[in-house]
């Protein structure tokens, strides 16, 4: 909790003095944040157990996350294991007559590539493989040194920014919905058997969402501060 305390020692308030006459941020007891959606300055206690919502537009500004680093680190490790399992086994198998055809995520991408659909192959590879993998390994890279060495990894602030920008492009949960639709669609013409990896995919999606929701960006930015 100590680490949060120094969060937002407002530089403008330090150097200007006249920036906001009512700003008590210098005392380190209040955090001031500009709402990313409406620009309103919101003030709330720096050490807080609550979720804070912008007074004007309702955007979520801060969520309290106890043991944020430990929990997201553990969940990220679990997610990485599940990710490897999900991509090592076929997620669907189709039986029709004497044929058995099964597919992994990677073989699907390869098949798109073979059919000269390079753009599609790239989109699927980025959204279902590259982005989730970047997210997971990036979080490990950031969180593990904070946990065990109590200092940030080199260039960790860059890695965290990369993760923040990549996150909206990770779409494993949408891919899961795609598996369900394909299951119904093909169920009419052949016997479809979901593989191990279909189940590990479901678990992976929840574990990953849980890991991300346990992150506390305010605390992380404070510890990754490149000025130190």
């Amino acid at each position: 909790m100590d680490s949060i305390r120094s969060h937002h020692e407002l530089q403008p308030a330090d150097s200007g003095g006249d920036a906001d006459p009512t700003s008590p941020a210098e005392h380190g007891r209040l955090t001031i944040l500009a709402c990313p959606d409406c620009d309103l300055l919101n003030r709330f206690p720096t050490v807080t157990q609550r979720t804070h919502i912008c007074l004007r537009c309702g955007a979520v500004l801060y969520r309290h996350r106890p043991d944020s680093i430990d929990r997201s680190l553990a969940l990220t490790c679990a997610a990485l294991v599940l990710f490897i399992i999900s991509n090592s086994f076929p997620f669907l198998a189709m039986k029709s007559g004497g044929f058995i055809q099964q597919t992994t995520l990677i073989s699907g991408i390869v098949e798109l590539w073979r059919q000269d659909l390079y753009a599609l192959a790239a989109v699927v590879m980025l959204t279902c493989l590259a982005v989730p993998l970047t997210q997971m390994t990036g979080l490990l890279y950031i969180l593990a040194p904070l946990k065990w060495a109590n200092r940030p990894a080199p260039r960790a602030h860059r890695v965290f920014r990369l993760i923040l920008h990549a996150t909206p492009w990770g779409m494993m949960e949408v891919f899961m919905l795609g598996i369900l639709v394909a299951l119904v669609k093909l169920g009419k013409m052949a016997t479809i058997v979901p593989g191990i990896s279909a189940f590990s995919f479901v678990v992976l999606i929840f574990v990953m969402a849980w890991a991300v929701s346990n992150l506390n960006p305010a605390e992380l930015w404070d510890r990754l501060d490149r000025r130190r």
Partner: peptide, 10 residues
Amino acid sequence: IYVVTILVAL
């Protein structure tokens, strides 16, 4: 897009 990917592969 994902449905198409799966169909094409399977």
